[in-house]
Design a protein around this nucleic acid. Sequence first.
RNA 1: CGGGGUAUGGCGAAGUUUGGUAUCGCGCUUGGUUCGGGUCCAAGAGGCCUCGGGUUCGAAUCCCGAUACUCCGACCA
Length: 480
Amino acid sequence: MAKAKDKKVEQITDMEVDFAQWFTDVCKKAQLIDYSSIKGVFIYRPYGYAIWENIQNVLDKEFKKQGVENVYMPMLIPESLLQKEKDHVEGFAPECAWVTMGGNDRLEEKMAIRPTSETLFCEHFAHVLQSHRDLPMKYNQWCSVLRWEKTSRPFLRHREFLWQEGHTIHATAEEAKSFTETMLNVYADFCENVLAMPVTRGQKTDKEKFNGAEATYTIECMMHDRKALQAGTSHYFGDGFAKAFGIEFTDKNNQKTNPHETSWGVSTRLIGGIIMTHGDNNGLVLPPKVAPVQVVVLPIAQHKPGVLEGASELRARLAAAGFRVKMDDSDNSMGWKCAEYEMKGVPLRVECGPRDLENGQCVLVRRNDGEKTVVAIADLEKAVAEQLELVHQGMFARAKKNLEEHIYEAHSLEEAKELQEKNGGFVKTMWCGELECELAMKEKAGMSSRCIPFAQEHLGDTCACCGKPAQKMIYWGIAY
RNA sequence: CGGGGUAUGGCGAAGUUUGGUAUCGCGCUUGGUUCGGGUCCAAGAGGCCUCGGGUUCGAAUCCCGAUACUCCGACCA
């Protein structure tokens, strides 16, 4: 079996030795990403971009089921527009990149390269909204945004990153709140059912919520190193932005009214989540539903008569059945090919050699657990579909176990700190709801609040930090 | 943005202390060989030594500056 010391070509650091280096190695050596000459601005290579395209394809269909339409907004935001909502500009202005020149001339007004597009959507909504009959408006755009981050890492923190941002306006607060939750659930279901990443659903504290929002909901995932990753957020804005931007409609009683607004987004950070949730020391492990190559067919002893023809037929049948399939008939050795496709996280390998063909069979090997299954070639399509499903389930079960086994309960700040230092993961405590206690947890235990889970538990009556009466159970952790 | 580390063909490194013709492994090209877990042999190609200044007869090597990567903090999806 493949041992680390056998790896000659594409050596990656073991995750137990240095998780951060392991992550970077996987990103580069699985050919997901390349560095550009500008800090924090990355090149998505074909294999990495293909994962994003698959994420887009699945999510976009889900959005459209919710009545969402795609649009495209400008990349540039005039400074005056960005400044219309006070909290929002305070949050984003410090990390904006600005365009100040047009050709050789200094611009009258500088323009931000969008860090997010609330202001543009709001301006547009104000233009086009007239009547309650126009509502709701549910828009989304797939685009890139720019935030001048101080530190950057592939997928997890780019200065320019790809995402989608949904923006909707509704006639009533109830409808907008409900839609905020609907979209959070779309994200949560996507993470679990498509990416095999179990999530914790909950609400952000006031400190952690989006600038300008009334409420931010989040899905939090746990990575293999037991650090937390915020995988997606959905925000309820109330009518704050609508008032600031003058968005009004005439309601049924002929009264001018402000609509209620939502926004929600996920980014290519999800790919970072996939890597750190599922990857192992042999490289990437991709969830079958978004893997650019779901099945790789490897002919063995391919110079022998009939082998290449037999393997080609398997490839063609799988392609016809709708699988994303590739055959590697290069001159590389079997061992090289096995290691290569393990590195790239291909969920299922089909081995097909002279002995297999004689017996009318082939061997299916799962990436996630290495399990081999011999199947009759006649049943190929069915067997591949089954194995891919088992890969998904196996990946989800392993990730779920990692999440559930690393949620710890604490009743004091000191206990929380000890548990985090010893185990990592999430530490759950009761909380009074005050910012001071959140700051204390950060200061003394190095943890930020991750979310106030929807699934509340009663762990006690008092806040673990200050001892005052508790309002909610909250999860703490160290986040990417 | 503060503190450390790093930068040499596509990748990983040696060479820097003590300045003197650019080294090694892998990959790549070509031809054979092999193929059920990173085959073996031979012949080739490929390098403004991160960038910009300075010192010197001469700089990968010494000095100054910049940039990028990386780790630890602070800030953030």
